[in-house]
């Protein structure tokens, strides 16, 4: 496979993942703003921070109002992480690697792009927001479904998955990092309703409200929430799940090509570092420090993969 093709697949799926994550962040922000209008502005500010686009946002707006945040995160093409920009980039990459995709995956991606262009043609009103967000999730799911259902399980598939999980790991870590203070024990002792809402937001941002209810007897507890999002390998957006997937896909590539590269060692070391921890040691050593380290090492791994597999000249 061409190095460029591997890179195109990797980034196509990173951008698809990003578009969905951004939509999910908007969903969580929207929900909390509905239920707690007092804290809305702070909540939207934290959503923009989590999406990692604070500077870009502040260059354009002074206040964190719902309408402008939603517009910036969903439609603004000057924001490279907006849903529309991410879908644009995903499709450009899909065109670049078209020969590596089945017709179904390409068409699902193209249809996703057409659907986004349609629903995001105009600013999205509060009334339409739930529908639009649902459309984004659904269209993304269609691409994933086409990938799972029609693609050979070969290097193409591995690079697609690597993109998905490197992006997702980054995203999950950032969601936690922005909100880590509400999970800290000192705050949880207060047990205010504010915290419950914040926990709920975190769970919603990673689509884990339901899973959490099933796994935790319904009792919201910050340590359990953190444990689930960081270390639970059953949770498809947890850091442990993502690093496991990254390691597994890299190992499949190593087996397929018959060569182990620096990224393989790096991925295994990263996973080991994660699994050597319990949620208690993570809290003891500092949740924020842990998440920052994770984000840095995940980014480094992404760059290593790009180099080892010659994405660029």
């Amino acid at each position: 496979m061409l190095g460029k093709t591997a890179g195109g697949l990797f980034w196509m799926f990173r951008f698809l993942e990003r578009s969905e994550n951004t939509a999910r962040l908007v969903d969580a922000g929207f929900r909390i703003a509905l239920t707690r209008s007092m804290a809305a502005e702070a909540e939207w500010a934290s959503v923009v921070g989590t999406a990692g686009v604070r500077d870009g946002y502040l260059a354009k707006y002074d206040e964190f109002r719902a309408a402008s945040v939603v517009d910036f995160l969903l439609r603004d093409r000057s924001n490279p992480s907006s849903v529309m920009s991410a879908i644009d980039s995903a499709r450009s990459n899909a065109r670049l690697v078209r020969t590596a995709l089945t017709r179904e995956v390409w068409e699902a991606t193209n249809e996703c792009w057409m659907a986004m262009k349609e629903v995001l043609r105009r600013p999205v009103s509060e009334n339409d927001l739930p529908d639009v967000l649902a459309t984004i999730r659904r269209q993304n799911a269609l691409v994933r479904g086409a990938l799972t259902g029609t693609m050979l399980r070969n290097d193409i598939y591995n690079f697609a998955h690597l993109g998905t999980f490197v992006e997702r790991a980054d995203n999950t870590a950032r969601i936690l990092d922005v909100k880590y203070y509400v999970l800290l024990p000192s705050v949880s002792f207060v047990g205010s309703s504010l915290d419950n809402v914040q926990w709920e937001t975190i769970l919603r941002s990673v689509s884990a409200q339901r899973a959490y209810r099933w796994l935790s007897d319904g009792d919201a507890n910050p340590k359990q929430i953190a444990n689930m999002i960081i270390l639970d390998q059953r949770m498809p957006r947890s850091l442990a799940f993502c690093t496991g997937q990254i390691r597994e896909n890299l190992n499949l590539l190593a087996a397929n090509y018959g060569v182990r590269l620096a990224c393989h060692d790096q991925a295994e070391a990263a996973e080991q570092r994660l699994l050597d921890n319990s949620i208690d040691t993570i809290f003891e050593n500092g949740l924020h420090q842990f998440l920052s380290d994770f984000i840095v090492s995940n980014r480094a791994l992404g760059l290593r993969i790009e180099q080892d597999y010659r994405f660029y000249g």
Partner: peptide, 8 residues
């Protein structure tokens, strides 16, 4: 004339 692949 050679193309850059993931394996060289």
């Amino acid at each position: 004339v050679a193309m850059r692949t993931t394996q060289g």
